[in-house]
Amino acid sequence: MRKLTTVLSVATAALALSSSAVATPPQELIDEGRAIYHDKTRGNCISCHNIDDPVANLPGNQGPMMIAMKQRFPDKRLLRAQVWDATVANPLSIMPPVGKHWILSEDEIDAVVEYIYQY
């Protein structure tokens, strides 16, 4: 696991370098996303998705771990679409339609996407 993360972060770094034209998201946005992800009363993503962040507390495992996001979602807009409404890909998904049902605001979804895109 540790190994994999290291390899992945090297890969990520390489990717970031090769596309240095893409602006890095501001740290406040990532921090905001992190708060949303782990807060029971906001995104509560942690209740279903583990993530390799030391603040992760009692993660659930209904959904996949948030890892290798850049590899799995080279197009960030598709990642955002998945978070906005998981029922498009899987109508029976247990994952709540976070955007469609106004669970989070559009800005909050942007923040949470930036946060998970770091993993």
Binding site: I46, L58, P59, G60, H101
Partner: peptide, 22 residues
């Protein structure tokens, strides 16, 4: 509901899979 969950979501497919610590 806002979370778009059915009883079956948690108690069939989701049974014995963690929702946070539950």
């Amino acid at each position: 509901g806002q979370l778009n969950l059915s009883c079956a979501n948690c108690h069939l497919k989701g049974s014995r899979i963690h929702v946070r610590a539950d």
